[in-house]
Design a binder for these strands. Structure first.
Lengths: 155, 155
DNA sequence: TGACATTAGATGTTATAACATCTATATTCC
DNA sequence: GGAATATAGATGTTATAACATCTAATGTCA
């Protein structure tokens, strides 16, 4: 049970510090969860980032959001938002329209088709989260969230 | 303090489940730490993955490791190991040599130059870990590691 | 031995990430 | 009003990731 990270990565030396061990644990665990998540999405022809954008735009209906607002709400930074949205527009998942009030802005909205796709994935997404983390109890999950929030708290 | 993730991502709806909230916290925290780490490495002309490969090869001296052994020890999977090592070879950080015993294998070793680079980064790397996680106490770090190990324990 | 499967790695191709630079529009402030 | 600055986004380029396919060497077993 719980083979530790050192064994997982076939390392023979101990970690240099507790901070390092914690950081590697966070990153490793994230990578595993993200990989599983992307694999689950693959049959539907979208990436994890695209899925997250769809979620964000679904939550912003019917007003929509401009490019930078979408980027701000993403879990990971996305320097190339324009072309990601281009691809999603080509795929019929979003529409874009230049704002009348401020012509620098381009409002992006989810299409009916995009909403249908993301709605249809809700159960499978929840199942993936459950599969990856459901074996922890409520107490442990809450403690984990608390500690990670604390990690992020200082910058 | 500790603005929670919901606020960070400007979400107005609560998370669907505790599992989902935990997963997003893990991934978000990892992204922040990885971004900081990569930014720190940038002046030295290597990526995070390249740094990790150098660490692995430094730990495998003087025997070296073949391509797949390197890939297995990485924090994240690397389907394109060949060309990553190509680039590192071009940069003078590693050498490669086809094994005599089994001519399918190519043994990769860190060069003197590569070792010098990774040695010179040790302090800065530790400082980055300290900066990102040092504000947690020993108890909290240990608990965090324990919980993340538990997350990874079941598959 | 020879057909077949397996393994290690290389290579071709496409998609995406990362970064710098550029254009158009708005805002600031004299 | 107009120059300077800031902001939103588009575009060009390079590097890397992802995936499939290919070649060479080894192992398996009739």
């Amino acid at each position: 049970m719980s083979p530790d990270l050192k064994r997982e990565l076939k390392q023979n030396k101990p970690f240099k510090s507790l901070c390092q061990e914690a950081q590697l644990n966070i990153v490793r665990t994230s990578n595993i969860l993200v990989n599983d998540f992307e694999r689950m999405l693959k049959p539907y022809g979208i990436t994890g980032t695209q899925y997250n954008v769809l979620r964000i735009l679904r939550g912003a209906e019917p007003a929509g959001l401009c490019r930078n607002e979408v980027a701000e709400r993403l879990i990971n930074r996305m320097p190339d938002a324009t072309r990601l949205l281009d691809r999603m527009e080509d795929a019929g998942l979003v529409t874009r329209e230049r704002s009348e009030a401020d012509r620098r802005l381009v409002t992006t909205r989810i299409t009916k088709e995009g909403k249908k796709l993301v709605d249809s994935l809700d159960d499978e997404v929840e199942a993936q989260h459950e599969k990856g983390l459901g074996h922890l109890g409520k107490k442990d999950l809450e403690k984990l969230i608390e500690l990670l929030t604390l990690v992020r708290s200082h910058n």
